[in-house]
Design a protein around this nucleic acid. Sequence first.
DNA 1: GCAACTGTAACTATATTGGTTACAGACAAA
DNA 2: TTTGTCTGTAACCAATATAGTTACAGTTGC
Lengths: 161, 161
Amino acid sequence: MSTSSRFAVAVHVLTLMAWADDEPLKSEHVAESVNTNPVVIRRMLCELAESKLVVSQTGAMGGSKLARQPEQITLLDIYQAVESRGVFSLHRHPPNRHCPVGVNIGTVLNQVLDEVDSAVERVLANITIKDVVSRLKPCVSTAVSKRKPAAKEQVLSARNY
Amino acid sequence: MSTSSRFAVAVHVLTLMAWADDEPLKSEHVAESVNTNPVVIRRMLCELAESKLVVSQTGAMGGSKLARQPEQITLLDIYQAVESRGVFSLHRHPPNRHCPVGVNIGTVLNQVLDEVDSAVERVLANITIKDVVSRLKPCVSTAVSKRKPAAKEQVLSARNY
DNA sequence: GCAACTGTAACTATATTGGTTACAGACAAA
DNA sequence: TTTGTCTGTAACCAATATAGTTACAGTTGC
């Protein structure tokens, strides 16, 4: 469905900042952890800054850090900052107005899609970046990924690694 | 997020069939209501048939109809038939294994994304095609869409028409 | 046999995301 | 005040996914 990893990357980035406490992180350092290009990170940081989730400092010794405490940033905040649309989309082109189903299916679908969006938002609103860091900590001592994903999996992001 | 309208179109198609009662619908007729090409519809009908939601008949006087009663088809069935992935994706490329956050964020994100998917599925499991038809009926007598969307909106499917 | 359908391949068009290079401007420190 | 280190941003290209189109083989009712 979602072909984008924007939400996952954004959570990753803010988690790094919470992990780093209050020390500003350079986009290059973040990009290394996320395994992408610094510009991709900087683009995302701009969006997160617009939503007042991070603050950045230009110039030497600059970088970005959280704008609020980790327990005051929910995954819903992040979701709304980086994902422009709801979970589903309606038809690309509006259906046929002369068909009794076509002319009204949009209204009904919108109701359904709003219900879906609300359910997603309720889940995300109840998880903070602090929670993510907490869930992360028990892993850090133990886990090392066991297998190397095949080349195809690496690209597909099929939600397993 | 979701750049695809597959779910919306699939619901539209099955709603048409429920509306038509047990009469087989031609792909061309369905395409007219959805406002797209018959082949797009036939492709989708094949997926829906694989999931045993519709049955099709080739040849003259052929067409497709529901494989079960409308009250026995949930939006979750449809969702699973036409959308291959979950609501969100993880990183395109796996994060840096040598970073304590990077190596474990996938595990935590998977937990979160599973919670999200479950929430979506709970909503969709509780709505049947019969419900959709019921919600549709009150509209049919009254509503006629008031404004003509601008050209750009028609393409963007910004979830309003 | 013929006309009306579906199933499917092959191709193009369009949109979104992500990756890359390049550079202007901000800023700390010497 | 100069220099080196950052961010912000524009301008591309590449990769992927969806949708639209044409064409045609195969099935079926009449």
